[in-house]
């Protein structure tokens, strides 16, 4: 199954999707946001969310409550579609630092999602987190296959990163992961 022949489901920020359709492919572009791609490889059902938690003030756990809620919505729908809780696995992408003006919001999101998954006992099969580039990912929910491609950040964001830019991979480089 390739992106050209798959039924592509676009998952935008704040949304999530689940599917048991072997021809489905979930797609999203991530900057500071994170996508958690969860799947049950035995029952062949999976889903993706796409979230960005607001930066927390000191001692404020509201962002954790919000994040936990978003993860739970996805997990609940997966369970309703036949996934089994103890078989769930996850692949993670995103959490980039897209601009020096955005502070550590990406890092906070990474910290949240890793802590959440450890707490829930959901093993992370693969992750591509942090960095300074945007990513496009394609996730095949019934097999858990995921492809990632780094993409050029919008011009305005690049300009603000001058002087502190990590080496970039060519925009065309694509990594395929299984």
């Amino acid at each position: 199954m390739s992106v050209e022949t798959a039924k592509v489901i676009s998952v935008i920020q704040g949304e999530f999707a689940v599917s048991a359709d072997p021809t489905a492919c979930m797609s999203t572009v991530l900057g500071s946001c994170i996508a958690a791609c969860l799947y049950d490889p035995t029952n062949k059902v999976g889903g993706m969310n796409h979230f960005l938690l607001p930066e927390a003030r000191n001692g404020d756990s509201q962002h954790v409550k919000y994040g936990a809620h978003l993860m739970e919505l996805l997990i609940n729908d997966l369970l309703k579609m036949g996934a089994q809780r103890d078989r769930l696995r996850v692949k993670l992408a995103g959490g980039g630092k897209m601009s020096q003006f955005l502070g550590s919001v990406g890092e906070k999101n990474i910290e949240f999602v890793q802590k959440y998954l450890a707490n829930e006992g959901i093993p992370i099969d693969w992750q591509s987190l942090g960095g300074r580039q945007a990513r496009r990912i394609h996730f095949y929910p019934t097999t858990g296959r995921l492809t990632e491609k780094f993409v050029q950040a919008p011009k305005g964001i690049e300009a603000s990163e001058k002087g502190a830019r990590a080496p970039r991979r060519p925009a065309s480089s694509g990594v395929e992961l299984f």
Binding site: S61, V64, A68, M71, E72, I75, R85, N119, E120, G121
Partner: peptide, 13 residues
């Protein structure tokens, strides 16, 4: 609650 994180957050509250 079946989610450990949610249980923890409720108890924390």
């Amino acid at each position: 609650d079946d989610m450990p994180t949610s249980r923890g957050l409720i108890v924390q509250a």
